[in-house]
Amino acid sequence: MSELRDQDLILYYYGEATNVEEIRRRLESSAAERVRYDELCRMLQLASDQPVPEPHDDYGARVWGHIQPKLDENEPTDRFRRWLDALLGSLLPPRRLMASAALVALVAIAFTAGRYWPSQSVIDEQLSSAAGRERILLVTVAEHLERSEMLLIELANAPQDGSLDLSRELLLAAELLPANRLYRQAASRAEQPGIAEVLDDLERLLLDIAHSGELAGDGLDQLQDRIRSSGTLFRVQIVGSRVQRLNPTTPPPTTPPPSELGDV
């Protein structure tokens, strides 16, 4: 009999396992499984014991004192939208209302894209020094890999009966593609072959997902096979986890982490 998976024990601990009776029986009958579960409980208890500082009695008043002067300020995006509306209103006749709406949408998309997708020039500027190159790359790639990993997990676990609408996942794949391309190129320039290689694999998979049209039945089955057999999800998880550990903005651990991305 195979041992219980970590996932089963974690879900059991939180009362969310679907196979509660089976896990309970296994824990009762196997000393080794009980030891594993006890270790998990003790570790999570350590986290539970973390104290939270109690806010002062007048905390609410202090928060109010900070935010009250700002309540009437408009958010920058509101000001931008009003300015754009006014500009369009003065420049465009009513019959071109539809065109103005399209223009607003276009500007909004470009604005959003600019926020989420770094331009080549921004990346090049940030990569101008070796130190900057490494720091920026580690932070941005860690985020990107995490989003990609979540997408692949969704797709790998999606039911094939079409009961789940996967259109959001297709859009996300299309959204991740241009960023992935930029990060892959940046990783190559920063001489990070381990990262560049996994981004290369990921790019091909994202491309397939983004262009897969309707995802249900055989199409989804093939894609799930591809995700499993290519090993991309596993590699994304490994590299993502290592990149995060190497990220110089995270607090220093006191045990040495696996050191080289080249191991991947």
């Binding site: 920026i136 110089p248 220093p252 982490p257």
Partner: peptide, 19 residues
């Protein structure tokens, strides 16, 4: 923001590898 700050001159980039 932390990633954009230049580290101190002698600070290793992958500082978290050294404890």
């Amino acid at each position: 923001e932390a990633s954009r700050r230049e580290p101190a001159e002698h600070e290793p980039i992958l500082a978290n590898q050294i404890s």
